[in-house]
Each structure stands twice: as structure tokens, then as C-alpha cells.
Design a protein around this nucleic acid. Structure first.
Length: 764
RNA sequence: GGGCUAGUGGUGGAAUGGUAUACACGCAACACUUAAAAUGUUGUCCGCCUUGCGGAUGAGGGUUCGACUCCCUCCUGGCCCACCA
């Protein structure tokens, strides 16, 4: 027997798979399709890390299992390569992002290939490839055509360091998600995508898909649908409209609380206000901008106005307060101190009345039913360089003119400097030769849009491009999409639940509406993986220097070991800490398989080999467990079941057919060593082409069972009985056991609990 | 403050109403070896008056013949959201 040498075996089979195109998706296949997808990576400068390996291996296991179950599987890969880190690197080094991206994707590709992932490499895509972003631009023009893309002066989150506008979603605790700088507010003309027009459907259609419950919950909370009513409160001749989800509490409303944003608008249209009020509004609005979200002391100022409570007909004071937000509801509430903690706190501080004893009858008459969403339209421009140029031209006479389809893509031009200008314009604005073009409609001198798209653009439709990646006539042929969509199983990080996952659902729904894609939802099933933490349970980070590079592990132990270890280390959807010390376990496991495999080969030469009965039972149990566990993503228990199986095989060497079935189970986890042993056993075709083993249920049923005997629910003994022995018989057998007898002398048996084939419990 | 999620040996974890601690790491002893590594065997939750008995799944209570598992109260961590009307 040759010693187990993963270097040789793994290189050999990776070459074999590539030469034989083992993992190609076959569009014409009569087999049922199955589309497996893992979020494509951003090719960062750090290369692949152990967290990537976890997700891609898990989906690889599912892809490989589905192939063996007879499906025509698509498991594609590509690069989400636009984005700030590459651009910032270009700013620092002056190296062109195109070149940086090429170098980095080359590294990632090599690393992926060394992991033996069963990607269909013929469908590789790159969001920064003009052949790809031509269609990202084309899709943007469809949004524009259907009035879902518009330009608006928006108060945007402005990062003074990156000099870039940020979506709300990119602001974390008031700071820029990327660089941590406190975010400021700025008024700026921005391209917007009207995702709010799809809010209702993005919420409702979650009922039709198979997402993990926590993912649905998080999306629903983010979309923030709330049903309530708008109620008008008369203030002299004017009206204040408030929004409430609890109209039944109107009899307890003792004041009106208005956000400073709304109050400012009133003053702008001529409502009288004292200097004190004006200065309060200014101060409060300024506080808002600091982005400090920790709970603040509640403040407020009385407006001198009174409103009529339509329920009680009584006058209640109108206050401007800092705890009501301008962009939620109508920016004004009826305050009910008896039912709302925040109102209670405020009322106490300012001595406002609190009515606890009121009737709730008749409240329905006062309001108009409305539905509110928290979701905001998506700010879709960036004043940066490394993104898809927004394909429109500004003409003094024709206004906003889309770049004609024949002129797409609008190629990102080369620039000397990647830094945005200090007034926040894209570096593209500095290239006069690129900016100045004739208007496509009237021919007069006009200017190109210089904003680029956010890095979420390319990833909003990449799953569609995989269906038809080389199409030069359209973003994807409808027939190809019909054959391939939807994605049957999509895995990714929880951090994308309210960003990419929501955005891409929105794009897909829009494209469905205009008849360009065949399904209402892009993803049938969505799961998420847990983070891999560094040793000791802390986050892996470059600055701490505790990042584990998978290359070292592959070199030392082999890819099969790394894959098995990452699946074994803990529950897939939970965060787990890396432990270099523990990798040796999976390596020993694979070496055992290697050794037993060679024994099986030897034995097969000397004798035909009958089933080893002891092994047959555990093998079928393992088939059943691994089959189910992969579906549940309980990879860790699937691995331990296979370890148990191997431990039995060491004592009861299986015959060829038994061992082959075991190899088929292990093949999705450790594909290289399984292919090698599979071929040593005389198989000429890849194990990937063989059929997934089935559990023979009859082998699981043994003729005898172990019966647990309890006295007062404490285990006192156990014995072996025939299957399905009757209660009477089990009781008699149990009572006769000496370990049981001595306990029964202490009292009389009040009750006997009997669970067939499992246990008998004497209550004394 | 809200939502989700978790808390089990020295460590990662298993068990979702029926023998708690499977599987793996680590550790210890032994075998093999001149030696080490590797490998193999055995042991490894805690306590005690150790052929046995008692206790233990964050803490306390409840339901049940029986609870890591279901219910209630509390404590602690992680993630997401956050004065959302």
C-alpha cells in the first residue's frame, strides 16, 4: 500500500475532472435541472480565507450529491469585482484597477481549483468585464424607461473620507460601513431606484419561497410594513396629520408630538414661530446629523398651538420633540402617555396630562387606513471611479437622454487619478474628451453622466447571467432562463439579507414584470452560513493578524482533510472558532479510509467477498443519516456518522460493494481520495457519475432491541429482548433482574410505564 | 429598548420527551521503537464511605412516570435593528 499522499491524488483528480469536463451543466439534458448557488466572492487582496471554504464546500457537497441523484446540476462561479477596496488600492498605488482585478481573480481561481470545487468553469463571469457590464447598463436603462430610475435631490449620507454618498444600508451606527468615519448629511442630486414601489410584493411574496425563517423575519422587519391609520387633528384652520398603529388609544392622546423636520417645513410655508422654537429646531436637526444613535435625553418645546382631539373634542397642546423622526409615518404622532413608554417619559418630564382611564369605543371613525413601509428608495449613484458608468447623456435641450443600445457598453475610461474631486465629483468628470459628446437625439453638444453605479448593481442579476453567460445579443436568452431559473438553493451570509438579497429580488421582480425573466422570485431556497472565527472565538481580521489562509492547510494536510474539517467543526449555520489543533482528526479519518480501501482491494483479489453483516447494519444507518443530514445542512453530524462507520469497518472489513457504497457517501465531502479508491476498486468512470446509494431499511431492523429498565425513572438495568416483545413479557423479564429486584422490595409498584422496544419504568 | 439566536466535560460539539456527554481534539498510561514521530490498546464530567451510590446540561421554579429538550421568571453572550408611532 502506498502511503496516503494528498498532493499527488488531488492534483491527479483535479486534472481528470478538468480534462473530462465532469461538472459541465448540460442545457440539453433530459435530466431534471438543479441550480446550486453560493454568493460569488469579491476578489480581495487577502485571497481566499477559511470562511469562503466553508460556504463553497457546503454547496459543493450539495451539488455533488444532486449529480449522483441524477440531476443536471449548475454550480457556477464568478467575480463581484467592482468596489471600493480595489479603488482605494488604486488610489494608493496608482495601479489600474483592471490589472489589480485580473491579478486577484487569478489568485482566487487557482485557490478555488485547489479546493476541488465542482464549478462549471465554462460559465465564469466577472462584473467588471465590459461584456458583462454592458448588460448591467442595459438593465439600468430598462429601469429608466419604466420610471423606476429617477434623479432626485436627496439628503444623502455623505462620507467625508471616502467622498462618497452612501445608502442608508451602508451606514453602520452613524459611521461609514467601509472606513468607520462618522457620516454627514448632504444635499446632492442622485440617481435613485424606486424599490419602494415593490415593497408590498417584496414583503408578501416571502410567503411563496423557502427561506430560513430568520431570513424572512429580517427582511420583513427591514421592509417594515405596518398597517395603521392617519388621523387629522384640527389646529385652528390648519390640519396636522398623524400616523398611528393604535387608533384605539386616541381617547388617551394628551398632546401632539411633531418631529423637527416636519415643524421646519411648516415654518417654511409660513406658520408663525418664535426665535426659541426656530433655534430649538436648528439645534435638534444638527444633533440628528452627528449620526449618534445612542438613546438621548428627550427634549421638546411647546409651539403655543393647540389641536382638537377628534375623539374627546378637547384641546391638546402641540409640541416639537426630538424623539419623533421626520421620515417615519407622517413625522408627527398623537402622544398617548398611558400606552407608550416614550410618551410617558416625556409627559412626566414636562408635566403633561396622563389619562389612564378611558374608553376605547368608537375610535374607528377618526382615521384613514394606510400602509407604511420603512424601506426607502435606493440611492444608486456613486461619485467614484471603479463602477459601471451610468449610461445617460445630459443635453441642455433634450434633458436626460439614454445612451442608445448600439453604443453600449459605455466603457469605463482610463484616468490618471482615481481620487474623487473635493466637491465630490467622480474622477470621470475630469476627462473632458470622455464627458463631452454630442446628444444622441439632437446632436447638440452634451455631457455624459459621470456617476457610476454602486457595487450592488452587478450582483443584482448575476444569477441570470450564469444561465447564458456568453450571450452577446441579450443579458440572457429567455429560453435559457426558463430552462435554468429559479436558483434552487442559494446560500450566503446573513449580512446580505437586507442588501443584496433584497436588491436582487427587486431586480428580478421588475424584469419579470416587463417579461424578461420567467419567475417571480429568483431564489427558491435560501440558507445562510455562520462565520468562521479565529482561534479563541474572536473575529478574524487582518489588523489582529489572526487570519487563517487555507493554502497552508491544503499544503500540510490536503484539500480533502480541509473540506472534511470545515464541515465537521460545528453546526453550519452557527459561528465556529477555527482550531488548527483539531484538523488532525479529519486527516486521521481519511487515512483510515485509505487503509481500509486497500484492505478491501486485497481481499477482493483473494475472495469474492460476502456481505459483512456487522458492517451492513451500520452502513445502512450511515446512508440514511448522511442522506438526510446533507439536506438539513447538518454536515457535522454527517461526518461523525461516517467516522463511526469507519470505526466499525476497521474491525469488520467490508466487502467491495459495501465499501463502494461508503465511498459514495464520502465522495461529496472528500472527492479526491474517494475517486482514487473508487478507481483502485476497478471502476473506470468517475464516482460522480455513479448513483447515490439508497438505504435498505430492512437492514436497519434488528431482531433484538435493548430495553431500559427504570425504577422511579432512574435507570437501573438494561437487557436484550426480542423485537416487539409484549408489555407483559417485558415486565416479567425486567422484574426478575437482580439489579431491579432489590429496588422493588422497597415498596409496591404503583404504576408501570411501557414504551415498546425501548423502556419499562416501575413507579413505586 | 426591540427582534433573532445561543448557554452541555479541559476544548469543538452530539442528543428536540425515554441510557446526557455520541463523534473529534487534547490529556494520561501502556504496547511497538535504541529514541522520537506515527500507529495501536486502555482510560478520561464531578463527588463519595468506589462490586456500588449520589450529583451535574447558565440560575430558580413548573408540567410529566420521565425534561438539555416543553412552559414561566431571571442571568450571561453573539448577531441584526434601533426613540419606527
Amino acid at each position: 500500500m502506498d502511503p496516503y499522499d494528498p498532493k499527488v491524488i488531488e492534483a491527479k483528480w483535479q486534472t481528470y475532472w478538468e480534462d473530462n469536463q465532469t461538472f459541465l451543466f448540460e442545457p440539453d439534458s433530459r435530466k431534471k435541472k438543479f441550480y446550486v448557488l453560493m454568493e460569488f466572492p469579491y476578489p480581495s487582496g487577502d485571497g481566499l480565507h477559511t470562511g469562503h471554504v466553508r460556504g463553497y464546500t457546503a454547496m459543493d457537497i450539495i451539488a455533488r450529491k444532486r449529480r449522483m441523484e441524477g440531476y443536471n446540476v449548475l454550480y457556477p462561479i464568478g467575480w463581484d469585482a467592482f468596489g471600493l477596496p480595489t479603488e482605494n488600492y488604486a488610489i494608493k498605488t496608482g495601479i489600474n484597477p483592471i490589472q489589480v482585478t485580473k491579478e486577484r481573480t487569478d489568485v482566487f481561481r487557482t485557490q478555488f481549483k485547489s479546493l476541488g470545487l465542482s464549478f462549471d468553469w465554462s460559465r465564469e463571469i466577472n462584473t467588471t468585464d465590459p461584456k458583462y457590464y454592458k448588460w448591467t447598463q442595459w438593465l439600468f436603462l430598462q429601469f429608466l424607461k419604466h420610471d423606476l430610475a429617477y434623479k432626485a435631490k436627496a439628503t444623502i449620507n455623505w462620507c467625508p473620507k471616502d467622498k462618497i454618498g452612501l445608502a442608508n444600508e451602508e451606514v453602520v451606527h452613524g459611521c461609514c460601513e467601509r472606513c468607520g468615519t462618522p457620516v454627514e448629511k448632504r444635499e446632492k442630486e442622485q440617481w435613485m431606484l424606486a424599490i419602494t414601489k415593490y415593497a408590498e410584493r417584496l414583503d408578501k411574496d416571502l410567503d411563496t419561497v423557502n427561506y430560513q425563517e430568520k431570513i424572512k423575519t429580517q427582511q420583513r422587519n427591514w421592509i417594515g410594513k405596518s398597517e395603521g391609520v392617519e388621523i387629522n387633528f384640527q389646529v385652528k384652520k390648519e390640519v396636522i396629520t398623524v400616523f398611528t398603529t393604535r387608533p384605539d388609544t386616541i381617547f388617551g392622546a394628551t398632546y401632539i408630538a411633531v418631529s423637527p423636520e416636519v415643524a421646519k417645513k411648516w415654518i417654511d410655508i409660513g406658520w408663525p414661530a418664535s426665535d426659541a422654537i426656530r433655534s430649538y429646531i436648528d439645534t435638534t436637526l444638527k444633533e440628528r446629523v452627528t449620526g449618534d444613535f445612542t438613546e438621548k435625553e428627550k427634549t421638546g418645546i411647546f409651539t403655543e398651538f393647540y389641536a382638537i382631539n377628534p375623539a374627546t373634542k378637547k384641546e391638546i397642546p402641540v409640541w416639537i420633540v426630538n424623539y419623533v423622526l421626520g421620515d417615519v409615518g407622517t413625522g408627527a404622532i398623537m402622544a398617548v402617555p398611558s400606552d407608550d413608554e416614550r410618551d410617558a417619559e416625556f409627559a412626566q418630564k414636562f408635566g403633561l396630562p396622563i389619562i389612564t382611564d378611558y374608553s376605547k369605543a368608537g375610535f374607528e371613525d377618526f382615521g384613514k387606513k394606510v400602509t407604511r413601509f420603512k424601506l426607502r428608495d435606493w440611492v444608486f449613484s456613486r461619485q467614484r471611479y471603479w463602477g459601471e458608468p451610468i449610461p445617460v447623456i445630459h443635453c441642455a435641450t433634450c434633458g436626460i437622454v439614454p445612451v442608445p443600445e448600439k453604443d453600449l457598453p459605455v466603457i469605463l475610461p482610463e484616468v490618471d487619478h482615481y481620487v474623487p474631486s473635493d466637491n465630490g465629483e467622480s474622477p470621470l468628470a475630469a476627462i473632458a474628451a470622455w464627458v463631452n459628446v454630442p446628444c444622441p437625439t439632437c446632436g447638440a453638444p452634451a455631457k455624459r453622466e459621470t456617476d457610476v453605479m454602486p457595487n450592488w448593481a452587478g450582483s443584482s442579476w448575476y444569477f441570470l447571467r450564469y444561465c447564458d453567460p456568453h450571450n452577446i445579443d441579450s443579458f440572457a436568452n429567455f429560453e435559457r432562463l426558463k430552462e435554468t431559473m429559479p436558483v434552487d438553493w442559494y446560500n450566503g451570509g446573513m449580512e446580505h439579507t437586507t442588501l443584496h438579497l433584497l436588491y436582487s429580488r427587486f431586480w428580478n421582480k421588475f424584469l419579470f414584470d416587463i417579461g424578461l425573466v420567467p419567475t417571480l422570485e429568483p431564489y427558491e431556497k435560501r440558507t445562510s452560513h455562520g462565520l468562521i472565527l479565529a482561534e479563541g472565538g474572536v473575529k478574524m481580521s487582518k489588523s489582529i493578524g489572526n487570519v487563517i489562509n487555507p493554502d497552508g492547510v491544503v499544503k500540510l494536510y490536503g484539500t480533502d482533510t480541509l473540506r472534511v474539517y470545515e464541515m465537521f467543526m460545528g453546526p453550519f449555520s452557527e459561528p465556529v472558532a477555527w482550531s488548527t489543533e483539531s484538523i488532525i482528526g479529519p486527516r486521521r479519518f481519511i487515512e483510515k479510509v485509505w487503509k481500509i480501501g486497500h484492505e478491501v482491494v486485497l481481499r477482493g483479489k483473494s475472495s469474492p467477498g460476502t456481505d459483512t453483516n456487522e458492517f451492513e447494519v451500520v452502513l445502512n444507518k450511515t446512508i440514511q443519516k448522511v442522506t438526510n443530514d446533507i439536506e438539513e445542512m447538518s454536515f457535522n453530524t454527517a461526518v461523525s456518522a461516517m467516522m463511526i462507520c469507519v470505526n466499525v469497518a476497521e474491525k469488520h472489513t467490508p466487502n467491495k460493494s459495501q465499501f463502494e457504497r461508503f465511498l459514495q457517501l464520502l465522495a461529496p465531502f472528500a472527492p479526491h481520495v474517494c475517486e482514487e479508491l473508487w478507481s483502485l476498486l476497478g471502476n473506470s468512470e468517475s464516482i460522480q457519475k455513479s448513483a447515490w446509494p439508497l438505504c435498505d431499511e430492512s437492514k436497519l431492523v434488528s431482531n433484538t432491541v435493548t430495553i431500559i429498565v427504570q425504577v422511579n425513572s432512574k435507570v437501573r438495568a438494561s437487557f436484550t429482548a426480542d423485537l416487539d416483545t409484549s408489555e407483559e413479557h417485558v415486565t416479567v423479564l425486567a422484574i426478575e433482574l437482580p439489579e431491579v429486584k432489590k429496588w422493588l422490595t422497597e415498596g409496591y409498584v404503583k404504576r408501570v410505564i411501557f414504551v415498546k422496544n425501548k423502556l419499562v419504568n416501575f413507579v413505586i
